[in-house]
Amino acid sequence: MTTTSDPGERTGPSAWDAALRLLGVRARSRQEMRDRLARKGFDAETIDDVLARLDKHDLVDDTEFAAEWVRSRGTNSARGRVALRQELRAKGIDGATIESALAEVDPTDERAVAGGLVAKKLTPVQVDQLREDPAMRDRLFRRLVGQLLRRGYPQSMAIDVVNEALDAAAD
């Protein structure tokens, strides 16, 4: 912690130290870093200097950040393209970089993950009810499609995956 004799000057960790601590938690986009440092009370000039220094040491790279975000959130959180696009936009990533990162998502893998989510949510009790009560299909369909849509899967994919799962379960 730094202290100064001038009461008008900032006390506490430097912007550089704050930036390194933020990066110690997880990778950050340039905009995220700018916003977090501003929230900590650093002025725009100081933030620009820190971002330039981070660039010099290759510690902030939006292209790499976006690619890693898509890999991580797509795999660990089972997010679909729609949700990933929204998350990256919220992190200040530009459209071309987002589309480049999303181009790496294999549609077959994305569909398989969506199918796995539906399989986890479809309980044996629901499968039995589905076989006994055809009206149950509509309720399950709406619920399962809604869950996939909230996770960011395209509507057409969600509908297809849920229909396939319900058809397989009804047999």
Results as ranks from 00 to 15, higher is better:
43 D>S: 05
60 V>C: 09
29 S>P: 09
39 R>N: 13
35 D>R: 13
88 L>C: 02
72 S>E: 14
35 D>K: 09
72 S>L: 14
11 T>V: 12
51 L>Y: 02
93 I>A: 04
59 L>D: 07
63 T>V: 10
30 R>Q: 03
98 I>W: 06
58 D>A: 11
98 I>Y: 08
98 I>K: 12
61 D>P: 06
50 V>P: 03
28 R>T: 07
27 A>Q: 14
83 A>I: 00
89 R>W: 03
88 L>F: 01
49 D>K: 15
47 I>T: 00
65 F>N: 07
30 R>F: 01
44 A>Q: 14
105 V>F: 05
55 D>H: 13
96 A>K: 12
11 T>Q: 13
65 F>D: 08
100 S>P: 07
57 H>C: 05
19 A>M: 12
61 D>W: 01
97 T>W: 02
28 R>D: 07
37 L>H: 15
74 G>L: 08
57 H>E: 15
51 L>F: 04
12 G>N: 08
79 R>G: 05
15 A>C: 08
67 A>P: 00
28 R>G: 07
84 L>Q: 09
79 R>S: 09
50 V>W: 01
15 A>D: 13
105 V>L: 14
66 A>D: 01
89 R>K: 11
21 R>F: 05
90 A>E: 13
87 E>W: 06
85 R>P: 02
102 L>Y: 03
25 V>T: 14
26 R>A: 15
89 R>H: 07
18 A>E: 12
89 R>A: 08
80 G>D: 08
66 A>Y: 00
71 R>T: 12
104 E>M: 05
48 D>K: 15
82 V>I: 09
90 A>Y: 02
75 T>Y: 07
75 T>S: 11
12 G>M: 06
57 H>N: 13
50 V>E: 02
98 I>H: 09
61 D>Q: 05
39 R>M: 10
101 A>P: 08
67 A>L: 02
23 L>T: 05
47 I>S: 00
53 R>W: 10
102 L>T: 08
90 A>F: 01
56 K>S: 13
45 E>C: 02
73 R>P: 02
92 G>I: 07
40 K>W: 04
57 H>Y: 15
25 V>K: 15
20 L>M: 04
36 R>Q: 15
35 D>S: 11
104 E>Y: 02
80 G>Q: 06
61 D>T: 04
57 H>A: 11
80 G>I: 06
99 E>Q: 11
94 D>L: 08
52 A>Y: 05
67 A>G: 01
67 A>H: 01
82 V>H: 04
99 E>Y: 07
32 E>K: 03
11 T>K: 09
89 R>N: 06
68 E>A: 15
30 R>S: 04
22 L>M: 02
95 G>Y: 07
28 R>Y: 10
38 A>Y: 00
97 T>V: 15
87 E>I: 07
70 V>N: 05
81 R>M: 09
14 S>R: 09
44 A>F: 09
98 I>A: 11
90 A>D: 10
101 A>S: 12
38 A>R: 02
71 R>H: 11
55 D>W: 10
